[in-house]
Design a protein around this nucleic acid. Structure first.
Length: 581
RNA sequence: GAUCCCGUAGCUCAACUGGAUAGAGCAUCUGCCUUCUAAGCAGAGGGUUGCAGGUUCAAGUCCUGCCGGGAUCGCCA
């Protein structure tokens, strides 16, 4: 139930009846949104300004013409023309209250569910870290972001698949194999001296070696070592992700893609489209690599699709480049029925975006689109001081370190309080502080307060199940604080839609804070003004209506936390770990 | 040299993909609160949105050119 969309449809109907000649394209530019300034009413539409040119009249005149039609809409009580030609609409309070009733009926799981996705299949690929070591906090941010985007799109009505693409082929796993063999020899008593340059120095590989020796006697077969190491490390990765609450639907292996001949098929497809040729690339200008020499190689004509230079498909040793393999992978996903592909990558992949998008466009002949949201780095501090890196892992702070320190809930929430493209400072002291300055705590506190009120309410009035609250008469709710909350709650379905379209889960985190802030504000008013308390003895109708609203706040917070992947807490006590999950 | 990301209050960040007077929190200042709804409350000041042009009814948002920070630049993914 999304009153914004409903009202938008009504307004489009009115516009169409007044100006029958207006075409669909123009109509689609007409928006209905809540104005920033609440004194401008509940909703504002730009219809008159959009239509002005096509109709050939100034905006305010167009607005006049639309006025009567808007006034006749049943949920509208007031229509005003304002500013350059905005039409401000005031809605009946019942319109918003019906959303609250609907929320109580549907519950936290379903409230806010949208239909814009129309069951369209979307593949979201994220994390996809190489199985060469433990996940870092950087991976954690990508994992959390990707997971939230996937949840968000699923809630907006898309059929979402969460994918982990395992880069288990290529040079890095060979380096891994060398490094593990070294550690195995070390574990077997050999003196290996310093870890040579180019090998992974991390001590976690000692564990791999030890586990290997428990199962195998020799290590002269590289494939056995490699397969063992990959499986071992992938398993570790899955354990970490599991504790973070991230569970992928599907793991696709690069080695399997290669073995299946998918790369050859993709190459054939591109060749038949006339997009593969043998040629020589120019050296990059400015900074020429020292060992640069012109070389003829197999190139993909990505410049036809918006890229800056054509890209090589084969390495000098004849094997395919990672880019060629990725194209095969994307093509594979497309053939599995996904024509919206989202691939969450680190900000260091910025230079990769154009060519990847070009490739998908080319090989699917425009039938599929690829989005590559870039996730920036995380700097970890404790009280402003840089946090030491884990020795075990080598040079990174691991996801595990952070998980042990603050828990999954804090990580998931805090990492979504910043736009993905912005670097994020994550301060251990700040994010675990129990004060209103910590957004995680602030939101959980609001939810816990709601639960506390509901507990008292149950003692006072008995049955306050969602089913019975959904039938409660909400007409006693008329204070500004109450209406503000009701209106805020009713925007949740719209937030889901907008955030999903923009692929920006941070908006959900902000929304959650807005709801919490409004609720805390209402609560605080009750300290000074006893008539604003939730449970008023001797006034059951008002109390019940307020209980319904409190429950509505709680389930809206729960619903939005659900998208973020955070478990809402029913109570906070200082002697209890904030992280209950 | 090229490409991409970023630049908003003293600080950390928002701003509903072009809407009205650019908003929160922290910090600062001024009041209030000895309560049972602990982890405070209410209010105030604070801005040429890096700079300069352009597009239009309307620009933090789109285009062009600069300035500054970061990332990347054939055989790592």
């Amino acid at each position: 139930m999304n009153i914004f969309n409903e009202l938008r449809a009504s307004i489009h109907r009115v516009v169409h009846s007044v100006f029958p000649n207006v075409d669909e394209a123009l109509l689609s530019r007409i928006t209905v949104e809540p104005p920033r300034d609440a004194s401008h009413g509940d909703m504002a539409t730009n219809a008159a300004m959009i239509l002005s040119k096509a109709v050939g009249k100034p905006p305010r005149t167009v607005a006049e013409a639309l006025l009567d039609g808007f006034k006749k809409l049943p949920i509208i009580t007031k229509v005003e023309i304002a500013g350059p030609g905005f039409i401000n609409l005031t809605l009946k309070p019942e319109a918003f209250k019906s959303v609250l009733a609907h929320a109580l009926q549907t519950g936290p799981e379903k409230f806010g569910d949208g239909t814009i996705g129309r069951g369209h299949k979307v593949n979201v690929e994220y994390v996809s870290a190489n199985p060469t070591g433990p996940l870092t906090v950087g991976h954690a941010r990508g994992a959390i972001f990707g997971d939230a985007v996937a949840n968000l799109m699923a809630k907006a009505g898309y059929a979402v698949q969460k994918e982990y693409y395992t880069n288990d082929a290529g040079k890095q796993v060979e380096v891994l194999t060398d490094s593990v063999i070294l550690r195995i020899r070390e574990a077997a008593g050999e003196n290996i001296g310093e870890i040579p340059q180019g090998c992974y120095p991390g001590e976690y590989l000692k564990d791999v070696a030890k586990a290997y020796l428990e199962k195998h006697k020799t290590w002269d077969d590289r494939k056995t070592v490699r397969d063992f190491a990959i499986e071992y490390l992938m398993n570790e990765i899955k354990i970490d992700l599991g504790e973070l609450g991230v569970r992928h639907d599907i793991f696709i292996s690069e080695a399997a893609i290669l073995a299946s001949g998918a790369v050859e098929k993709a190459m054939q497809q591109l060749t038949s489209l006339g997009l593969i040729y043998e040629g020589v690339l120019e050296a990059p200008k400015g900074k020429t690599p020292e060992d640069w020499e012109p070389r003829e190689q197999t190139l993909f004509k990505s410049t036809d699709f918006g890229d800056d230079v054509d890209r090589p498909m084969k390495k000098s040793d004849g094997s395919t480049t990672y880019f060629a393999n990725d194209i095969a992978h994307y093509y594979h996903m497309h053939k599995m029925g996904f024509d919206t592909l989202i691939n969450v990558v680190g900000a260091d992949h910025g230079g990769y975006v154009k060519r990847a998008k070009a490739a998908v466009k080319a090989i699917t002949q425009g039938r599929a689109t690829l989005d590559l949201p870039l996730v920036s780095i995380v700097t970890v501090t404790d009280n402003g001081q840089p946090v030491k890196m884990s020795k075990r892992a080598g040079t990174f702070i691991t996801l595990r370190d952070m998980l042990d320190r603050v828990g999954a809930g804090v990580m998931r929430f805090i990492m979504l309080t910043r736009e993905a493209g912005q670097t994020l400072e994550f301060d251990y002291a700040k994010v675990t502080e129990q004060s209103k300055d910590n957004p995680y705590f602030y939101v959980q506190y609001a939810h816990a307060r709601c639960c506390s009120v509901l507990k008292h309410a149950r003692e006072m009035f008995g049955d306050i199940s969602d089913a019975s609250l959904a039938k409660t008469d909400l007409s006693p709710l008329e204070r500004p604080e109450e209406m503000a909350l009701i209106k805020l709650i009713s925007t949740w379905p719209r937030v889901v839609e907008q955030a999903a379209l923009a692929e920006e889960p941070h908006r959900v985190a902000y929304f959650t804070q807005d709801v919490a802030a409004a609720f805390h504000g209402w609560w605080n008013r009750g300290r000074d003004d006893a008539t604003l308390r939730f449970l008023i003895e001797g006034n059951k109708p008002l109390s019940m209506a307020r209980i319904a609203l409190v429950r509505g706040v709680a389930l809206t917070i729960a619903s939005s936390l659900n998208v973020i992947g955070v478990k809402p807490l029913d109570e906070l006590r200082s002697d209890v770990e904030m992280e209950a999950a």
